[in-house]
Structures are given as C-alpha cells and as structure tokens.
Amino acid sequence: MINEATKGQTVNVSAQEKIEQVLPEPESNRVRISLDRSLYPLDAVYGASYVFIDRCFVYLDAPGPDRIEVLLQGRDDLEKSGLEVLAGEFANELLSHAWRHEIAEANRPILEAVTAQAMAGALGTPALEDLDDLDEMDFSEETFEDPLGIAMSWEEKYGKLADGEEKTDDAEDEAAGSSSDDGGDGDQEETKAED
C-alpha cells in the first residue's frame, strides 16, 4: 500500500501487502488490519493490542489458520486519514513487540540459567538433615584392605616430612615402627641417609 509519504521511496509493495493489509472503513469508524501469523507471534499481537485499548476498541479475529485480523474502532469519530494513522501506529507497536519477543526468546537460556543459580543460592547451605545419607555410608576400615600400602601417603610409609616441617619424636617413632614392620628395605635406608 503506497501513500504520499512513501512515494519516491523504494518499497517492495507486494511483500508489504503480503505481510499486512490495512483496510480503513470510515463509514464504520474502524480500520481492519490483516496480519500474517507466521511473521507476528500471537504474544506480540496481544502486547500491541493491550497498548491500544485506551485509545480505541480492539477486536481480534482469525479468518484463517495463517492470518490474524485486528479491528481497531475509534472511540471518537475518525476520518480515513486518522484511521490510517491509527493503523500505522499499531503496526509500529506490533513490530516493536515482535522484536522484543524475539530477543526474549533468544535470551531465554541465559535467563533460565541465571534464575536457576539465584534460586540455588537462595536455598543456602544444606542442613544437617540433608546429610542423612552419610549415615548409611560405611567408613570403617575393615571393608578396606590395603596390604601393599598403596593408600598410604609417602610420608606415612617412609617417614619423610615435607620441606619446612620438623620431625617430632612421635613421627620418628611411627616411621621407625613402620620401617621395622616393613622389614627395612634398601630404598628406605637410602632415604634416611639423605635426611
């Protein structure tokens, strides 16, 4: 649809008319806008309609499965140009809502992730009752056999301390005990000689 404002501009009229058809009906003081449902999500149509209900009476209809018809009826008497302006402003509002809808859809995974993190944080640290499962676990040493001493640390097994640590008498006794238990191999003697 070409009016005075669009004369001289390059407008793909056939594509524009496919998207929306604006039919002013001045004798009924209303304008009919037919929209392609695949281009404008229903949420956007509701949003734009909601904005306009204080300016005019808004009716929605679905004449076909792929089209939505919006009927704007003026609260006051409007001429044809007034109805076209009303329809144009509605189309702008509709486009704005459609764009915001698309942005919201694109950002939905991020919003959901942030919300989930916020909710998890709001729950706080787990209470002791939440740790009841631990009671069912068996931490006794009987079930764990380590005849080769694989689970022991190097210091436990050979008595070497980390740098900066002083060897206490107890630690020396333990180291001596463990070495006597092991029967004293050559490696251990080398280690003690290094110390």
Binding site: L42, D43, Y46, G47, S49, Y50, I53, V58, Y59, L60
Partner: peptide
C-alpha cells in the same frame, strides 16, 4: 471487547 482482550493477554503472559 477490550476487557476480554486485556484479561486474555494477561492470562497468556
């Protein structure tokens, strides 16, 4: 009509 549409829009949101 406006009232019914507004309620529907709020419900859909």
């Amino acid at each position: 009509g406006n009232f019914a549409l507004a309620l529907t829009a709020e419900e859909k949101r």
